[in-house]
Design a protein around this nucleic acid. Sequence first.
DNA 1: TTGAAAGCGCTACCAC
DNA 2: GTGGTAGCGCTTTCAA
Lengths: 341, 341
Amino acid sequence: MNLKQLSAHLKLSQTTVSRALNGYPEVSEATRQRVMKAARDLQYSPNLRAKSLATGRTQAIGHVLPISKQHEMVNPIFGDFISGAGQTYSRAGYEIVISLVGDDDEEAAYRNIRMRGSVDGIIVHGPRMKDPRIPLLKELGLPFVVHGRASQIDTPYSWLDTNNLRAFTRATEFLLDLGHRRIGLVNGLEFMDFAHRRREGYTAALTARGLTADPALMRSGEMTEIYGFRSAQEMLAGSDTPTAFLVSSMIAALGVRRAIHDAGLEMGRDVSVITHDDDLGYLRNGHDVPIFTATRSSVRAAGTGAAEMLLKLIREPGHAPLTQMMEAELIIGTSTGPARR
Amino acid sequence: MNLKQLSAHLKLSQTTVSRALNGYPEVSEATRQRVMKAARDLQYSPNLRAKSLATGRTQAIGHVLPISKQHEMVNPIFGDFISGAGQTYSRAGYEIVISLVGDDDEEAAYRNIRMRGSVDGIIVHGPRMKDPRIPLLKELGLPFVVHGRASQIDTPYSWLDTNNLRAFTRATEFLLDLGHRRIGLVNGLEFMDFAHRRREGYTAALTARGLTADPALMRSGEMTEIYGFRSAQEMLAGSDTPTAFLVSSMIAALGVRRAIHDAGLEMGRDVSVITHDDDLGYLRNGHDVPIFTATRSSVRAAGTGAAEMLLKLIREPGHAPLTQMMEAELIIGTSTGPARR
DNA sequence: TTGAAAGCGCTACCAC
DNA sequence: GTGGTAGCGCTTTCAA
C-alpha cells in the first residue's frame, strides 16, 4: 500500500492525503480523520526512502563505531548506549544506522557517510585524543555529538561525557585515605581520550599527596580479561607489590581478580580492587566500602542524553554546540579495604 | 557531487556514467576508466536512498533487537555479533539498520519494517520458544535469518545457533565426572529458547546418570550480576548446598563468584563454577580443569556466518532455508575442581 | 556503445 | 481546503 493507492482508495489527491498524514494545518478535520482511519485500516506506512529523497531529510541517525583492525572488538557498553538512544530516536521517528569504520580509512568513511546522505546526524563513539574526526565532521557540516571528548581540540563541538578525571581522582583518593600507597592502574588504551583522562585523575590524586606515580604500576591496553590478568600478575610478581588496583573495566577486572586469587591473596583484605562495574547496587546492602562504578543504566542514560542533544542540533541548524557532563557514582562493595602493609 | 553533476563534468549521459559505475558490460573500457577516475577524484558517492527508490533494493540489513519493557537491557553479546556481521555487510555494500522492538507491539513493528521498505532482509535476535515472529516474517516474505532457534516451530526457516543443548550436557557431565552431585543451574529466562535448551542439556545429563534435577537448584532470570549473586546466595544458604554451579552468563557468574566468596568458600576447591566466559584462553596455560565458554571471537564468527547466510538468501530469492550449528568450546581454567563433599 | 526519458514514492510549491 | 505537478537522484527500458 503506497500513497497513490491510498489516495485513490480515498478519492483524494496524494497531496491532501500526505498533508493529512503529516499534520499540516490546512486540512479539514473531517478529512484528516478519514485519512488517518484508512491509513490505519489499510496498514499504510510511508516508504522512508522516498520520503527522504523528497525532503532531503533521512530520518536516520548514524552511529559510527571505530573498529581497530587489530582486535575488531566493539566496546561492550555499546549495546546499552544504543538501547538508551534508540528509545529517543523511535519516539521521534528516526532509524538507527550503524557504520563500522576501521582505523585505516576513516576520513574516506566519514566523507562517504556524508555523500551517501543516509543519515541526518552522527554520534561519534570512542573519541581519541586530538581526534581528527571532529574537525572533519565540522567541515562536512553534518550535525554530530561525541560520546566522550577529545582533548586538544580547541574548536567547540557537542559532546556528552562521564567525568572520568574526577572519578579516578576520587577513587585514588579513597584508596589513599585507606592507607594504600602502592596503587596499580590497569587502564585502557591511552590514546583513547577517556583512558587518558583516567590516568590524569590517578596521577593528580597521587601528586596532590606528594606521591609520584610509579611507571611499574601503570598499564595501558585493550581491556580484555587476559590483559587484566597479565597486568596484575606482573605487578604482583615484583618486589614492591601493589596493595590495590584501579581497573578501568569490568572485563579486565575479572582477570585482575583471578591473578590476585592465583597469587594466594584475598581481595578486600590483602589487595583492594576498585573498578568500573556493573549492577553492583546489591552491594549497598551489608557492606561498607565503596566501589567506583559506571552502571549499565548510567550508560543507557548517556545514550538517551546524546540522542536528545543530536536531535536538537538537527532540528535547529546553526545551534551552538551542546555539552553535558555526567558524574560517576560511588557505591558500596567488598573488594576494597584498608591497606595491610 | 551527484550523478547529474558527474555526468555533466564528463560530458556523458547519466545513463552511461551509471552503467560504468555499476559494472554493466555495454560500456567501453576507455569510458569506464575515465568515469571511475573522475568518480574517485571528485569523491562521488551515490545517494543510497535514491538508488534504493529506483531499484527497489535498499542495500540495508535490519537487525531487530527485542527489548523487554521491564529491563530494557540489550544482550551484551550484540556488539560482538554486529561487529562480525558488519564486516560482511560492508564488503557487500550493505548498511546496517538497528530496530529496537518492545515486547508489546511486536507484530506491528515487523509489519512496519516491511512496509517502510528500508531493509532487504532481517536478522532476528533473541528468539523465544514458539516465537511468533517466525511465521510472521515468513508471511511478510522478507528474507530473514534467526540468531538462535525457536523450538516448536515446525515450518523450516533459516537459523544459525550455538549448540546449547550439547554444551550444557557436556558441562554437566564434566562436573558429574568430577564427583559433583549437587549442581546449581543459574540460567537465563527460560522462555528464551537458548536458556530452555541449556536446561534441557543440564537435566538430560543428570537423568542419564539416574539423578533427578532438584528444582531448588535451578534458577531462571535475566542475567545480571545481582541475579547471579542472589541465586547463588540462596542456594548456598540451604541445607544440602550445591558443590558446583553452571552459570549461563559471565555477568551472572560475577555475582555467583561473589556469593561464594561471601559465604567463606573458595572457588575451585569448595565450590566449582562453569560459565560462558570471555577471553579465558589464557587459562589454558598452567591450569588443568575445563571451563565451558562462548568466547567473544566465536560470537563475532556467528555474526559473520549469519550475515553471509542472509546475503545469500537475498541474492537468491526462493532459496531453501539455510541452517548452521556452531559447537561451543571447552577450555581450561581454575574455577572448577573435584567435589569435596 | 551511448543517450533520452519514464518512473520509483513522496513532498512542496503554486493554483484554484 | 484541495489538487496538479515538478522535482529529489538514481536505474532501466527503449531507441538510436
